[in-house]
């Protein structure tokens, strides 16, 4: 099931590009750079960031939970030894 969902992500993503979804909605920040990032590159980055950003937030969330429990159990084990 998870595998199927993962397979769907690129399809949805490709459709968004193909249909020309207006991704320039949330913009009010001025970027200053000596390097031209390129219009198409910026737009794909904004789209992609909204996709992978959610995944990254989840990853961080689970990493914190895992770190909390490993600390918790490590602490408990050392308490038991004492």
């Amino acid at each position: 099931m998870i595998r199927k969902t993962r397979m769907l992500i690129p399809v949805i993503f490709a459709l968004a590009i193909a249909l020309g979804v207006d991704v320039a909605e949330a913009r009010d920040h001025v970027v200053q750079a000596y390097l031209d990032p390129g219009t198409g590159s910026l737009i794909i980055q904004v789209l992609l960031a909204s996709l992978v950003g959610m995944g990254f937030a989840m990853k961080m969330f689970w990493a914190h939970i895992a770190a909390f429990f490993s600390k918790f159990f490590a602490g408990k084990q050392s308490d038991d030894k004492q």
């Binding site: 020309g20 970027v31 198409g40 904004v46 909204s50 996709l51 959610m54 937030a57």
Partner: peptide
């Protein structure tokens, strides 16, 4: 692949490129 197509699609088009927002998590996710 999609990056190159996005470059082609927006090449030479009048788009306001001066302002786009990417969240902190989005930035780190990239």
């Amino acid at each position: 692949h999609l990056h190159s197509r996005s470059q082609r699609q927006f090449s030479g088009k009048q788009v306001n490129t001066k302002s786009y927002k990417v969240s902190k998590f989005g930035f780190m996710g990239i």
